[in-house]
Design a protein around this nucleic acid. Structure first.
Length: 624
RNA sequence: GCCCCGAUAGCUCAGCUGGAUAGAGCAGCGGACUUCUAAUCCGCAGGUCGUAGGUUCGAAUCCUACUCGGGGUGCCA
């Protein structure tokens, strides 16, 4: 195995061809501005015609007023592809001016050699950035529901991709741990404690119930009363409702004063708040761990941590005339956005925009973020548009080097049920995430048991768990994040086609092949240094796909779109399946040199498959 | 009203940022297992890329308008 990681030793054929084509373009069209010198190299659309194609002739011909095919002919004549590809001729030109290129087998082998390194051809960036990724964002006293699945799974994948590309990543979970709703729960628990309940023993599920009860208790049904008065309902109903409203108003008052106590650091309130915090976070972080999302306590940066930063921030904006009063509220107006950003309510309270501004200030200023990526529901797009603009106006997005940090809302769509409506439980409530995962594991377990009746229970359980998480995560990651998608157990766990289990199966098959090889006494270390076997179309196709890994990862990174990596993973896994059918490795009659060459190709594909899964946060298994 | 997002095969989705005859998976039909793991592979069939214009050698992709669906829209988060 090649252990060097010097970019110069890595011969990416696409890159090498790009260079050669650019040289040829410069020779043929010397007056063309350098910015227009582009080779447009990509994998061939029609594998029969070659491995790569250049689409450069058409746009450049237009630019310099020449016929595309004529220009293509000149490029083909001028280009030197020796050592990389078969010589180009008139025959290489097709259609309006596509230039088809077939790689030399030696060049393909050399490229694979170079890729077969620790880093799999991914070089350290020249300018590593610090990238903040806003993930997860749970709320105190609430269980994680399906809504948190995507911000956790996609957010973590976005973070992992950046880490894999060599950037410094700091995850931030913007926990909803502050404000009136939490104060309501604190108030409730305080009452329960006074009545003799041992509140240190409550579970998150119970807290969730208490949260809902507290909400309901404080909700005044003033509109209902207005309606009854208008229509002239029963006097008795009117009185009852009035009483209920009075109760709600009283409860609200208590909650509000509890909030004041909490904010001013009242010891008893803070003690109860901390209890709620610990119960919630213990459960939620356990779910993150179960989802193989690298989100831990150190990534939690709740709204409460900004509480002392809000007033000074608002004062700063007032002092610099960035925020102005409007109808009693304090707002920031930004060019191009009609809706002003409200940062202080008429009653003096702050809003989530205020906290998010403080978060940007901290993330860029203190944490040194060159880029801040928010993996949050698309429904918040206006909010982030406002907050980003306001932060820019205030200069809170200025990095230490004086440039503006890139603020990105990597939004995602809603998870729908079979009925194409947002996924809810039968009673219309948000679906609990742990329950959903449990069901996925249960269903996976049935299939695993069916396929492996002999397997010991504990191994079967471990595999079912991994398969289920892979299935759920892959389903969530593999479509464009901006789109809504329907959550279907049957589809994601079907183990057929473009699913998580299919990827795991490809990996398990290669691992099984390697185990079998060792059983047969094949020296895998020797195979790891053997020349790649590249004669069969299936071998070449897989090899070419392996080589695309770095560029795919880079594209997934710059767009913050993990689904691109999923698409690649599926293509590579299915090319392996074809290779596996068509190219025997350990079967009788395969010569040792070919066997080793195919083993090496399989081992490299395995490493790319595993690296892709790891970069997406998808667990893998050794057998299934 | 205004703003944002989506629309591709019967269903679920890709389409590498403007390139060749638009691709997969399910479902349907027909093949391949005393297996290097058939949780697989091969073949067939299936499309007016929401509609109408525009930009150009070339548009699912870019621009405009419209239709349908979803979401948001000043003091919740």
């Amino acid at each position: 195995m090649n252990t060097t990681n010097d970019p110069k030793t890595i011969l990416d054929p696409a890159q090498a061809l790009d260079d050669r084509f650019c040289d040829a373009i410069r020779a043929v069209a010397p007056d063309l501005p350098e910015s227009q010198v582009k080779a447009h190299i990509g994998p061939s659309r029609q594998p029969k015609l070659g491995d790569f194609q250049s689409n450069c002739a058409m746009p450049i011909a237009k630019q310099i007023g020449m016929k595309p095919r004529e220009l293509a002919a000149k490029i083909v004549e001028a280009i030197d592809v020796s050592g990389i590809a078969q010589p180009l001729t008139e025959e290489s030109i097709a259609g309006p001016g596509f230039i088809n290129v077939s790689l030399l087998q030696e060049a393909l082998g050399t490229a694979l050699d170079a890729m077969d390194s620790d880093q799999l051809g991914i070089s350290v960036p020249a300018d590593p950035k610090t990238i903040i990724v806003d993930v997860c964002g749970v709320n105190l006293a609430k269980q994680m529901h399906v809504g948190h699945l995507r911000s956790t799974v996609i957010g973590d994948a976005i973070a992992r991709i950046q880490e894999r590309l060599g950037h410094e990543v700091k995850r931030q979970s913007h926990v909803g741990d502050w404000g009136l709703p939490i104060a309501m729960v604190v108030e409730q628990l305080s009452v329960m404690e006074a009545e003799g309940t041992d509140i240190s023993k409550v579970s998150l599920a119970e807290l969730n119930t208490i949260y809902k009860r507290a909400q309901a208790k404080c909700k005044a049904e003033t509109r209902a009363l207005e309606i009854i008065k208008k229509v002239g309902g029963h006097v008795k109903a009117e009185i009852e409702l009035s009483e209920r409203i009075a109760d709600a108003e009283a409860a609200m008052e208590k909650s509000k004063s509890r909030l004041v106590a909490l904010q001013s650091g009242d010891a008893d309130s803070v003690r109860i708040w901390q209890l709620i915090y610990d119960i919630t976070m213990t459960a939620c972080l356990a779910t993150c761990k179960r989802l193989h999302a690298n989100i831990t306590d150190e990534h939690s940066a709740g709204e409460s941590t900004y509480r002392d930063e809000l007033a000074p921030l608002v004062q700063d904006l007032i002092d610099r005339n960035i925020a102005v009063e409007d109808d009693g509220a304090l707002v920031v107006r930004c060019e191009g956005i009609k809706e002003p950003t409200i940062i202080r309510k008429r009653d003096g309270g702050f809003l989530y925009a205020t906290t998010d501004l403080a978060a940007i200030k901290r993330r860029v200023g203190k944490l040194g973020g060159d880029e801040v990526v928010y993996c949050v529901d698309s429904r918040q797009s206006l909010h982030f548009k406002q907050v980003f603009a306001a932060a820019h106006k205030a200069g809170y997005d200025k990095t230490a080097s004086g440039s503006d940090a890139t603020l990105v809302h990597a939004m995602f769509g809603t998870i729908l049920g079979e009925d194409n409506k947002p996924l809810k439980s039968r009673s219309g409530e948000n679906l609990n995430l742990s329950d959903l995962l449990d069901e996925a594991v249960m269903r996976a377990s049935a299939s695993v048991a069916e396929k492996n009746p002999e397997m010991p229970q504990d191994e079967r359980d471990a595999i079912s768990e991994a398969v289920a998480m892979a299935a759920v995560k892959y389903a969530d990651l593999s479509t464009e994040r901006i789109k809504d998608y329907a959550f279907r157990f049957d589809t994601m766990l079907a183990f057929e086609g473009d699913t998580g289990p299919y990827m795991l199966y490809a990996i398990a098959r290669i691992k099984n092949m390697l185990r079998k090889a060792e059983e047969k006494g094949v020296d895998l270390n020797a195979a790891a240094d053997a020349p790649f076997s590249l004669n069969e179309p299936a071998e070449r196709a897989m090899a070419l796909m392996v080589l695309r890994y770095p560029s795919i990862l880079s594209a997934a990174g710059s767009s913050h779109e993990p689904h691109r990596l999923c698409g690649y993973l599926y293509e590579l896994a299915s090319l392996f399946a074809k290779f596996y059918e068509q190219c025997p490795v350990l079967k009788e009659g395969v010569e040792a040199s070919q066997r080793d060459g195919r083993l090496r190709l399989s081992m490299l594909a395995l490493r790319v498959l595993e690296d892709s899964c790891k970069t997406l946060g998808i667990p893998t298994v050794d057998r299934m």
